[in-house]
């Protein structure tokens, strides 16, 4: 049996990687033994002892730390899912507006994308929390009918009550990721040949309909892969929620780690949780890709 050179290189690489992982694990074990800690997950079943500012499932400080982590993971999921929807709406709108025939719309969208992409996300989150939401009056007021009520105690939308922390993270992540998605969408639209725009315009089809029925379906193969990496970024960026005190998985894990001193176990759980979450998003996007990208366009 003769192996090609590339096979030997592959094997060499595997050996190197395994060796490095081995060194790492050995290092970890030696140090854990030296400090007398050892790896243990027992603390997960001890009472957490701390309160969570918001929870979708029933939770009390007397519940286990594992339960606290699960509840906070759901908090993360909730803000990530809502942000993905809002960021997509914002991004597709702004991306399409950048190719609008209306110069005002084009400039506004350009300003949004240009401005938001220049400012660090952490600063934006702090702005939304401390300036925008905490700056609201303490008495609720309704700017558009009874649909939305705003105050520095929380935001009400259609009878749903959102905390100020959740709102700040939601808006911050959505506005930030929306600007990135706008660029993805614009690039996708530009990948569709000029002739397609001219063809629908020549038939008297207006820009909105032409975008929906002619251009966007053809732009999707170019948009979707970049879009899913923006969703993954959004999920990872949600850990910055700790800065405004939103009880997301990272913030709560941080608290648990501080209280128990179980940093390695805590980070392992964090890593695996985010890995699971992002595999979920990635899988979802692959299914979407298979559904919406037309067979005639697949390469």
């Amino acid at each position: 049996m003769k192996w090609k050179r590339s096979r030997w290189l592959e094997l060499a690489l595997v050996v190197v990687v395994l060796t490095l992982v081995g060194i790492l694990v050995n290092n970890l074990a030696v140090n854990l033994i030296r400090t007398g800690l050892g790896l243990s997950f027992e603390w997960l079943w001890q009472p957490a002892g701390f309160a969570l500012s918001e929870h979708t499932l029933p939770y009390q400080p007397g519940d286990s730390t594992a339960w606290a982590l699960l509840v906070s993971w759901l908090n993360s999921l909730r803000v990530i899912a809502c942000s993905i929807v809002l960021a997509t709406v914002l991004g597709v709108g702004a991306g399409a507006a950048r190719r609008s025939l209306n110069p005002l719309l084009r400039q506004l969208a350009g300003l949004y994308v240009g401005l938001i992409r220049q400012i660090p996300l952490l600063l934006q989150l702090l702005f939304w929390y401390f300036v925008a939401f905490l700056g609201l009056p303490s008495q609720p007021f309704a700017p558009i009918g009874t649909l939305i009520s705003l105050s520095n105690q929380g935001v009400g939308i259609l009878g749903l009550n959102l905390s100020v922390e959740f709102s700040a993270v939601l808006v911050g992540l959505s506005v930030f990721t929306g600007a990135a998605i706008a660029e993805v969408v614009r690039g996708g639209l530009d990948s569709v040949p000029r002739g397609q725009w001219e063809a629908f315009r020549s038939l008297g089809i207006n820009e909105g309909l032409g975008l929906r029925r002619v251009v966007l379906p053809q732009a999707l193969p170019a948009i979707l892969p970049a879009l899913s990496s923006q969703y993954l970024n959004l999920a990872k960026n949600s850990t910055l929620a700790i800065a405004v005190g939103y009880a997301d998985l990272y913030a709560v894990s941080d608290t648990a780690i501080t209280q128990t001193g179980r940093a390695i176990e805590g980070f392992l759980i964090l890593l695996l949780s985010f890995l699971a979450l992002n595999l979920l998003i990635n899988g979802g996007m692959q299914v979407l890709n298979r559904i919406v990208v037309h067979p005639a366009q697949r390469t």
């Binding site: 002739g195 397609q196 002619v214 379906p217 053809q218 366009q297």
Partner: peptide
């Protein structure tokens, strides 16, 4: 734009590259 669309509804155009909608 609206004026142009009124014209386009009544004027057909055929291109060198066909420009059919592939999807």
């Amino acid at each position: 734009e609206r004026q142009i669309r009124r014209i386009r509804r009544r004027v057909g155009m055929v291109f060198q590259q066909f420009n059919l909608f592939p999807h």
